[in-house]
Design a protein around this nucleic acid. Structure first.
Lengths: 204, 204, 204, 204
DNA sequence: CATGAATGAGTTTTCATTCAT
DNA sequence: TATGAATGAAAACTCATTCAT
């Protein structure tokens, strides 16, 4: 069960990686993906420029991992909703609410998600980002699939409903942030937004 | 009232500007803002590289104008909704629907909107983009303000409701496009999405 | 027959390319291929750093073209020897002599030839260099093929004899240059070297 | 006379140095001096990267030692020829033959010799390489000096004759290797090449 | 001693922008 | 006014070398 205690060297290395991820996410959200230079990120993390490339082979790979972390983290909060049986309306509302709450607390994650898709379209990094986002979408779609049907939404289009939930949440805080909108929106209203959608669908 | 007929030279000039705008928007959406080089855009538009800078002082200014064009175009379709008196639920649903339909037909515009916010955060161009988006938001918010109140949504937060409508529409097609989602979503479902939100709010 | 007179712009462009080639060859020979930075070359040629890349897509491509120029230039002096019928011994001696004289006058060319093969082995540039050298070798081999046979050297191994002639000449000045050997070797001795080889073979 | 038996630790150290030399020579020949990274060499030798620098103070110093080893090894085979009195023609032919045979069996050594001269021209390493090669040349020149005179070659130019012998041999396999030429050239032909030169000179 | 993680000087290359024609 | 050649600031990335463990 217990892993061998990491050597102090490894510990410091992991710490540096975490710092780089944190500062990277912060800077990308604050300045934009292109404007956040590797040198800025390493300086902010307090390590040498070269160190960055001992952790990730390229800036793009770094962004891909960041996106993976964000979506994995997000998924961890979404998945439990699938375990408690509940009515269709509540399930959809809850999934939306979790996304909204997640991105309200972490607008940098919304920024990352939206910018990762702006990576050069031909490149490997773009492909990876799209695939990772697709995987998240599939997970959400699968989770809400039964509910969508009950709400009279075509089951084979549950991915689109999932996309609507996700993009509303992510877009709200991505567009909202520079407009200084969203950060102080009361949770109650955020929840209401998600619930309204579910409730409205249920009325059909 | 009538302007003097443009000289052939002016005509050609305007034609070139239009070509550059079209191709620029297309390329930015297809390859990403950073990957779409000025040289690519001018080549696609069939003009010399230098010509670009006789029309816009910089690439950023070009993007800003593109964003302005898109939002002006979008506003032209949204504004009429404010003229016909209707019930609150329908007004909100219609505003959402117009946005959704607009971006479904013009996913490049959704791409532009989302990428324009990723411009270097300190720069003039970013400021301009944010301001322009803010103006659109204000217009929408003002339009739906009475309705939001009737729906029990705090009037002073109508900007947030407007943001939700806009970001759902724009995000849906921005995130959906590389996932090959949204382009063939039936209008009926798109409308239903907007209406569901409005209807759900109305039930509170 | 007559080409349209090049515009002054094109003229200056060609002039810059020639300057870059000259200075590049000189610097590569003087400092080594790796030590001759693109910035050094452009500075020596009196143009901006970026200009280099409007002429060649990469430093490697530049080296490849330099090698091509050298071998083309060299071939121009070797080829005529094949036209005048002469005895086998003289032909081989003459080919050797032309190579020796060529590289004595242009030790930078010998340096380039030897260093071009040191380009990263996996890369396109290395492949190109090898192929180009192979083509030169084939030309020489074909030219001396009849003679080799008369000298009792296996005809199917004339490429090896050609290689011996070429590598003696190129190596002599490549290794000799830093040792300050070769530059002032009298032509008469150089010729004698080539002739000795041919004469010795003839005695078999 | 006998040194104290090396401790096991020293033994291991020497073994590592030998492995590094072997793999370094191999990789430099295979990929080029610049492309053969210290990390590659240590990985191939199965030691840590840092270990490299406990044996040599720099990569350049490593190359210099490699060159020294090669030329020392080569000299060991050349020198005995000076002991057996023989006619001038045979001596020169034999010296050439030994060089040719040596590099045929060890084309990596030819590669090293040629690339070592491409080291940055200003540097200490380049100076060292040139000096070491000069020493070898002097040794050969001195050895064949009496013979050159008998062959009617100016005695004060015996270094040039030595250079011709060495550079033919080294160049033949340096240029020949990527062209897949030389490796299977029969010894008999190789010898004949050397002998032809000597014989041809003798006929003057 | 051996190790390999950290480092940052140094390189190639890109591309928005300028400006002579 | 249109053009495209020239420019150089900037940025990602490399890798020999150092040094704490």
């Amino acid at each position: 069960m217990s892993e061998p205690a990491p050597s102090p060297r490894q510990q410091r290395r992991r710490h540096a990686a975490r710092r780089l991820s944190e500062e990277g996410l912060r800077l990308i959200a604050a300045q934009g993906l292109a404007a956040a230079k590797v040198a800025d990120i390493t300086a902010a993390a307090g390590v040498g420029k070269g160190t960055f490339f001992t952790h990730w082979p390229s800036k793009d790979a770094f962004v891909a991992e960041l996106l993976d972390q964000v979506l994995t983290d997000l998924a961890r909060r979404v998945r439990p909703l699938g375990l408690n049986p509940t009515d269709a309306e509540s399930l959809v509302a809850d999934v939306a609410a979790v996304h909204l709450r997640y991105f309200q607390l972490r607008p940098e994650s919304a920024a990352l998600l939206n910018q990762a898709l702006a990576l050069e379209s031909g490149g490997e990094a773009h492909r990876a980002a799209v695939q990772r986002l697709g995987a998240h979408l599939d997970m959400v779609a699968e989770m809400i699939a039964p509910a969508t049907e009950q709400l009279g939404w075509p089951r084979e289009r549950s991915r689109e409903l999932a996309l609507a939930l996700i993009s509303t949440a992510s877009g709200f805080f991505w567009l909202g942030r520079p407009l200084e909108l969203g950060a102080d929106t009361p949770l109650e209203l955020l929840d209401r937004l998600g619930r309204a959608l579910a409730r409205g669908l249920a009325r059909y």
